[in-house]
Design a protein around this nucleic acid. Structure first.
Lengths: 356, 356
DNA sequence: TAAAAATACTCCATAGGTATTTTAT
DNA sequence: ATAAAATACCTATGGAGTATTTTTA
């Protein structure tokens, strides 16, 4: 009996889907189906009630699932402990990130990480904030990447970044001539914003209120991509975290303006369950993320948290912020090279934890 | 990665031998070797230091073994819980019995059990008493069968039987004419006995002393088979538990005589670790063992513990005691038949827990 | 030298893929 | 009608056996 079948079963159950689970493990839907059927054959029981869609767990399935979930994570922990002796990094990291975490950033770190630790199965999913918290709650991911982290008692919060909030304006907008604005300039503008369900919207509302600025919210979206598209077609302007505008500024489809007299930031943080000790693979990923942020800060000549200290930079700072990522690549690449050398000294072929 | 490989690895470690472990799992030595090597390949580590004989665990191997041992028993427990829903009995029972537990008895129950629960992997080993306790201590067996159970605080003691002690005499011995003896008749006899390391020897010594009978111990052995052989060739007589003489009396190579004025018994008990809750397979086995004893008692017209109540039977009681087993067969067979029917109603092929 | 484990080589079972059918909404 | 899961079928991998070599005490 393959332990992998048990893993697949658990994934099938948590995802309530064979195909989704199959995807996670990089196998065909057929394989996932067969894996579960094999378990059922071995136990001579039916674990899932397939007469419903989505399927339901049978009593046996419930017991099996509850038991095996723990078991598998225990097993992973043992394997991790063994690997630590040889300073090897293997295992699995599942990351649940909010949509608006700058993809290029995270993906760049991920690429570097995969190169540095090819034996780690790294999986990143971009989800709605509430789903990210769900995933963490259900122990279905090792790390969560969120903005405005809620300080729930059972999550460990690791601050990662403070993203400056800048003004996004469409090309051709009167503001385009300027490189920075005052908050009062925003008064009376047509705004594209986030839906009130999102924390960032509530923060922005609060900030504007504090500055006695009133805007007219013409459109609301629950994700940053739609906001940007709407700004691009001239529906209005918006307040957005600088890094989320990187691509649009580079391609010249949007203009970003710094606010001179506001120190508004979107805090980004890494979350993980307090109960579960992070395996070394995950620890390394966190370190790499933090390192990439420090490198960015260094390159742009300020600490990531400079704003909280009130230092105000002059000139086209918003622009500089958006170019931060340029510095990441060499740093990550170096880390990757070093680690690969280390591995090469000891071994040629390294079996992957989850694919063998 | 097969979970079975982990099981094999653990067995290899506890037995400190690939071949022994292979035997336990009913596979070739080669397979056991390959199983461990596969784990090592997956972990990309060496778990065993094979440059020593017997091999030693590496640091990694130690960690892996310690972790997996628990894990596997947890996994078994989960599977057992799942099976209990369908009233199915699967799993593994490893029994460590002392040499002198009447083989025919235990083996008959085992045969009936295997028929009743074909999906249980039942393994019985006959060992020196001290090794039985070791096995229990190391959690390397589910049940121990011993005589004169030590009441260690971490073992649960289930009394199973009280075997009457009878006098074994060779054919042609003066006692052969008689059907029973008095204790005083033993005075001055040449005796074949157990080595003083065995509890039964110390008990017999004590009994004889209490009756002011002195014998001359001419030979000592640490197992009952040698004692019997020595009595057969006329070296002397002996005091032995009645059931151990069954075969010899039937084949007429030895004579067994009851003692009229002594109520000497060898208590047989089942032991198991208090920590570990018995799985249902093991519980059933215990029940079947107890049932077989009750059936014997019924057939021979007395309760197994009758002697403790002082009832003395007349006539060739020793003979009757030795025929007890005759009644076991039908009872066990019936139980087997019933259970097979039950299973047949639900399923045709049942995968074995440990062989799939 | 003897016993135990590793290895070479082989065969067969089966895991898992693709393509298709079945099933539940 | 559609999306998802089960199934049929096929292939390639690898699990496990026998026979042999290697290794350690």
């Amino acid at each position: 009996m393959h332990l992998r079948n048990v893993e697949i079963f658990c994934e099938v159950v948590t995802r309530r889907s064979f195909s989704k689970a199959a995807e996670v493990f990089g196998v065909s839907q057929s394989a996932a189906s067969q894996a579960v059927m094999q378990l059922e054959k071995r136990l001579n029981t039916t674990l899932l009630d397939r007469s419903k869609r989505p399927f339901e767990l049978t009593q046996a399935g419930e017991i099996y699932y509850q038991g095996c979930r723990d078991l598998i994570s225990q097993f992973r922990e043992i394997e991790d402990r063994v690997q630590q002796i040889g300073n090897k990094v293997t295992g699995r990291i599942r990351i649940a990130a909010i949509y608006s975490v700058v993809l290029s950033d995270l993906e760049q770190v991920a690429r570097a990480y995969r190169q540095a630790y090819p034996d780690v199965h790294l999986n990143i999913e971009y989800l709605h904030p509430s789903v990210v918290y769900e995933r963490l709650d259900e122990d279905e991911c090792e790390l969560g990447l969120v903005s405005f982290p809620e300080r729930a008692s059972d999550f460990q919060v690791i601050p990662l970044d403070q993203e400056p909030i800048v003004v996004a304006v469409p090309m051709g907008h009167p503001f385009c001539d300027r490189t920075s604005l005052q908050v009062k300039d925003l008064d009376g503008q047509r705004f594209i914003g986030f839906s009130t369900a999102l924390r960032i919207r509530r923060e922005i509302d609060r900030w504007l209120r504090q500055h006695n600025v009133s805007i007219s919210m013409v459109h609301e979206f629950d994700n940053v991509e739609n906001v940007k598209r709407d700004v691009e077609i001239g529906s209005g302007i918006s307040l957005l975290p600088a890094p989320t505008l990187k691509r649009e500024v580079q391609t010249g489809t949007l203009h970003a303006l710094q606010l001179e007299d506001a120190h508004w930031f979107r805090p980004i943080a890494i979350l993980h369950r307090k109960g579960r000790t992070l395996n070394s693979a995950t620890t390394r990923f966190v370190e790499m993320l933090q390192a990439s942020k420090s490198a960015q800060a260094l390159a742009s000549g300020h600490s990531p948290s400079f704003a909280t200290h009130g230092t105000i930079q002059a000139g086209s700072q918003a622009q500089a912020m958006m170019d931060q990522n340029a510095s990441l690549k060499p740093v990550a690449a170096k880390a990757a090279a070093r680690s690969l050398e280390e591995d090469a000294e000891k071994t040629v072929s390294v079996a992957s934890l989850t694919t063998t």
